[in-house]
Simulated assay, not measured.
Amino acid sequence: MPGESMASTTNTSSGLWKPTQLQQLYYGSGSVSKQLVNALPSPKSKAFIITGSSLATKTGLIKQVESLLGANHAGTFADIKQHAPVAQLDQATDRVVEDPNIDTIISVGGGSPIDSAKAISYRVNEKLGKYLFHITIPTTLSAAECTMNGGYSNEHGLKIAVSDPALAPRVVIYDSIFALETPPRLWISTGFRAIDHAVELMYHPNATEIPARQMCLSAISTLFTYLPKYKQDPRNEETITHLQLGAFASLGFLGLNVSGPLGLSHVLGYALGSPYSIPHGFTSCLTLGHVVQLKAESNPADAAQIARMLPYIGRPRSGDDIADAKAVGKAILDLVESLDLKTTLKDWKVPDVEATIITKRATKKEPGDPTFEAVLGLVKGLYGLGASFESKY
């Protein structure tokens, strides 16, 4: 079956990797203007653009895409909000269904427009019996473009997932010119989301050694190297391109082997993200380092996989997997702090009394269960004292 998983092991002599339907990946400055029209499935294709209001109203990027498409442009929906609320998703889906000639959806932006485009394609298939050809132009490092999984927030703010091999984008275009319009703090925080992908894929039981884990190690090295360089010079397009390719390496070789969330940091991110309006880049900054340290102490197999990352962030192995895995967690926390991204749940105005609710939401377990208690301790730690912080996104 197309979506069937096969568990892998640390043994590199056997395994199975199944790629997504991605056909083309373009990267480099100006790649949108050079390649977008060529990437359409046919010269007569009708393409519908999905994006957010900031890109549409505060930059010239969407008008540029519309102009490049010319007669192939069938419409634009520019009201996708953070965490993809279902109300906007319904509106955009209705617009697409009204025109049966639309065969292509183009997402421009971060994880919310990309996930929304997948969810719209899923709903269009339910109504019309066809999936849309998805071209994506990412403007963050969220790596949502890398998978067949999408999602949106229901009316209660909870994440609803959709997943199908046919939802994976067919074409990804990384253009550093488009990334120049992303606020640097947002860009760096989504880089941590990419680190989160790479780290949690390393210890996911279904991840293949080749190419998934090997590419995750490459991604970790790239992201740890170039995020500090980007902070020093956010206009350097070569640095931006390195980070875009690092984000792709963090999740682009997952293939069809894994469905659902990658691991504890991700499920905590979902439990914290849309319910409390915390962008997923910042949920990763909050949770990942602590999750890694918890896993180092509680799961020897996970500790062994985490320890493999240490040389890729410039630190020598000691030979003690638990100590090395803890060192990786410390390095992640240090990087968050050095890039001025350290926040707490108090900074995000999450009430202390919500800790139990967050833990139940993430673990699907009840108080008294050992997993619940361990994660509850982690969540309580996220309320630690910190500087006042106001969301700008």
Rank of each mutant, 00 (worst) to 15 (best):
V65L: 09
L68A: 10
A78W: 01
G30F: 10
Y270Q: 15
T359L: 06
F248S: 04
L288N: 02
A7L: 13
A271D: 05
A249I: 01
E209P: 00
K360L: 14
K127Q: 14
T140D: 10
D352I: 13
G329V: 04
S33N: 12
D233L: 13
S218H: 08
K364M: 05
S54G: 01
V171S: 02
Y131S: 13
I306Y: 06
T59G: 08
P169L: 05
T363L: 08
V162H: 07
I188D: 00
D99T: 10
I135H: 09
L243E: 02
I102A: 07
V97W: 04
H73E: 14
D334H: 11
Y152I: 05
K229G: 04
I220E: 01
T225E: 15
G246W: 01
S250F: 08
S388T: 10
D324M: 07
V97M: 12
Y203M: 11
D79Y: 11
T76D: 06
G157M: 10
A92F: 01
K364L: 11
H134I: 05
A161S: 15
T9Q: 03
P41T: 01
W348N: 08
G263I: 05
I173M: 13
E366K: 10
K130C: 06
R317C: 09
I220L: 14
L223T: 08
E155Q: 07
M1P: 02
K118H: 09
M202K: 02
P300Y: 03
S116Y: 09
G386P: 04
I106S: 05
S153K: 13
A161F: 03
A144P: 00
R193N: 15
M148W: 09
G52E: 12
T190C: 13
Y203P: 00
I135S: 08
L61H: 07
S284T: 12
Y131R: 11
T182S: 15
T363W: 03
E98T: 12
T20F: 00
G384M: 14
G70W: 08
T57F: 03
G314Y: 07
T241K: 14
K342T: 11
S221M: 12
D347E: 13
T12E: 10
S116F: 01
A74Y: 03
L68T: 11
I160H: 07
A212Q: 03
K44H: 12
R213W: 03
P311H: 04
L40N: 11
A7V: 12
S218M: 00
I102M: 06
P300C: 08
I62H: 00
E155S: 15
G263R: 02
P138Q: 08
K346M: 05
P41Q: 12
L223I: 12
I322G: 03
D103T: 00
Q35S: 15
K295I: 06
T93G: 10
W187T: 15
P370N: 07
E200G: 06
S338P: 06
